[in-house]
Deep mutational scan, measured.
Amino acid sequence: SGVNQQQLQQLMDMGFTREHAMEALLNTSTMEQATEYLLTHP
């Protein structure tokens, strides 16, 4: 699906929903950016 499943699982383990985590990974290129994205786009 174009996203790193390991990163997706890590974000879900942090408490984010699958949909939200996927959106973040699709819009960013690193785990750090994805986390930042999730925190700034709740």
Rank of each mutant, 00 (worst) to 15 (best):
E32N: 05
T35A: 10
N27A: 13
S29H: 12
Q9L: 11
Y37K: 04
N4T: 09
Q7E: 11
H41T: 11
L8F: 04
E23I: 10
E32D: 09
F16H: 09
Q33L: 06
A34E: 02
L11K: 00
Q9F: 09
L11R: 00
E19D: 13
V3M: 08
M14L: 12
E23F: 11
E19G: 09
G15V: 00
G15F: 02
E36R: 05
A24I: 01
T40N: 15
E23W: 11
M31W: 13
L11S: 00
L8N: 00
L39A: 15
L26E: 09
L25Q: 02
T17M: 12
T35Q: 15
R18K: 12
G2P: 13
G15Y: 01
A24T: 01
Q5M: 14
M22P: 00
T28Q: 02
T30H: 03
M12H: 03
V3D: 06
M14A: 06
N4M: 11
L11N: 00
L38F: 04
F16N: 04
H20F: 13
Q6N: 12
V3L: 10
L39R: 10
E32A: 12
G2E: 12
T17G: 14
L25K: 00
P42N: 15
A21R: 00
F16R: 01
Q10T: 14
M31F: 15
H20W: 13
S29F: 10
L38H: 03
A34W: 02
Q7W: 15
R18C: 05
R18H: 09
L38Q: 03
M14D: 04
E23S: 07
Q7H: 15
E36L: 08
G2R: 06
S1K: 12
P42L: 15
Q33K: 06
E19I: 08
E32L: 06
P42H: 15
R18I: 10
N27R: 09
T40F: 08
E32G: 05
E32Q: 11
G15R: 01
M22T: 14
M14F: 06
E36T: 05
H20R: 14
T40L: 12
L11Y: 02
N4D: 13
H41Q: 12
Q9K: 12
L26Y: 07
V3C: 04
L39Q: 15
M12N: 02
Q33A: 13
T40H: 11
M14V: 04
G15P: 00
Q5E: 13
H20M: 15
Q10F: 12
H20E: 08
M31Y: 14
D13K: 07
T40C: 09
L38A: 08
Q9G: 08
T35I: 15
D13L: 10
L26S: 07
V3N: 06
E23Y: 13
H20C: 10
T28P: 01
R18L: 10
T30V: 02
R18Q: 11
M14Y: 07
L38E: 04
R18T: 07
L25C: 03
M14N: 04
T40W: 07
A34V: 03
Q10N: 06
T30M: 02
A34P: 00
E19N: 10
T30A: 03
N4L: 11
V3K: 05
E19S: 09
Y37Q: 07
H20T: 08
Q9S: 10
E36Y: 06
P42R: 11
T28A: 05
T40Q: 11
T35M: 15
E36F: 05
N4P: 08
N4W: 10
E32Y: 04
S1P: 14
T30E: 03
D13R: 05
A24P: 00
Q7I: 09
E23G: 05
S29L: 09
L8Y: 03
G2M: 14
Y37T: 05
L8K: 00
T28L: 02
E36W: 06
L26M: 13
L38K: 01
T17H: 11
M22N: 05
A24V: 02
S1D: 13
T35W: 15
Q6D: 13
M22L: 13
H20Q: 12
Q6E: 13
T28S: 07
Q33W: 03
A21I: 08
A24E: 00
N4E: 08
Q33N: 04
Q10P: 03
A34Y: 02
V3H: 07
Y37D: 05
N4Q: 11
M31K: 03
T30P: 01
P42G: 14
E36D: 10
F16M: 03
A21S: 10
T28F: 08
Q10R: 07
H41R: 05
G15K: 02
H20S: 12
T30K: 02
T28H: 06
L25N: 00
T40Y: 09
L25H: 01
E23C: 05
G2D: 11
M14T: 04
N27P: 00
Q5C: 12
M14R: 06
F16K: 01
E36H: 07
L8P: 00
P42Q: 15
S29T: 14
L26F: 07
M12W: 02
T30I: 02
H41E: 10
G2A: 14
Q10M: 12
L38I: 06
T40S: 14
A21L: 02
L11W: 01
E36K: 06
L38Y: 03
T17Q: 14
L8M: 07
E19W: 12
M14G: 04
E19Y: 10
N27M: 13
R18G: 05
T17Y: 07
M12A: 04
M31D: 02
E19R: 06
L26R: 11
L8I: 07
A24F: 01
A24Q: 01
E19P: 10
F16V: 06
T30N: 10
H41D: 10
E23Q: 10
V3I: 13
T30R: 01
P42M: 15
Q9A: 13
Q10L: 13
N27W: 06
D13N: 12
A34K: 00
L26T: 09
Q10Y: 11
L8S: 01
M12L: 08
M31I: 14
T17L: 14
Q5I: 14
T17A: 15
S29P: 07
L11M: 04
F16A: 09
Q5R: 11
M31E: 02
N4S: 11
H20L: 15
T28Y: 06
A21Q: 00
E23K: 07
N27Y: 08
Q6F: 11
E23N: 10
L11C: 01
S1G: 14
T28D: 01
Y37E: 05
A34N: 01
A24N: 00
T35D: 03
F16Y: 13
L25V: 04
R18W: 09
L39F: 14
R18D: 04
T35Y: 15
P42K: 15
G2C: 07
E23V: 10
G2W: 13
Y37M: 07
Q33D: 14
L39N: 15
H41M: 15
T35G: 04
T17I: 12
Q33P: 01
P42V: 15
S29A: 13
G2Y: 11
Q6V: 12
A21H: 00
T30W: 01
L25A: 02
E23D: 08
E32M: 05
L26V: 09
L39E: 15
S29M: 09
V3E: 06
L39D: 12
Q5F: 13
A34G: 01
T30L: 02
Q33M: 06
L8W: 04
M12K: 02
T28V: 04
E23R: 07
E32S: 06
M12R: 03
M12Q: 07
T30Q: 02
A34L: 04
H41S: 09
Q6L: 13
F16T: 04
Q5H: 12
Q5T: 12
H41F: 12
G2K: 10
P42D: 12
G15N: 04
N27I: 09
Q6M: 12
A21G: 04
A24G: 04
P42T: 15
D13M: 10
L11F: 05
Q6R: 09
G2S: 12
N27T: 06
E36A: 09
E32R: 04
S1E: 13
E36S: 05
S1I: 14
E36Q: 09
M31H: 04
V3G: 05
Q33R: 04
G2Q: 14
L26G: 05
T40R: 07
T28K: 02
G15T: 01
A21D: 00
P42C: 10
T30S: 13
S29W: 06
T40D: 12
S29V: 09
A21P: 00
L8A: 03
H41W: 14
L25W: 05
T28E: 02
E32T: 06
Q33H: 05
Q6S: 13
L25M: 06
Q7A: 10
E19T: 09
D13H: 09
Q7D: 13
Q9E: 10
Y37A: 07
M22F: 09
Q5K: 14
M31V: 10
Y37I: 08
Q6K: 11
G15L: 03
M31P: 04
F16W: 09
G2H: 13
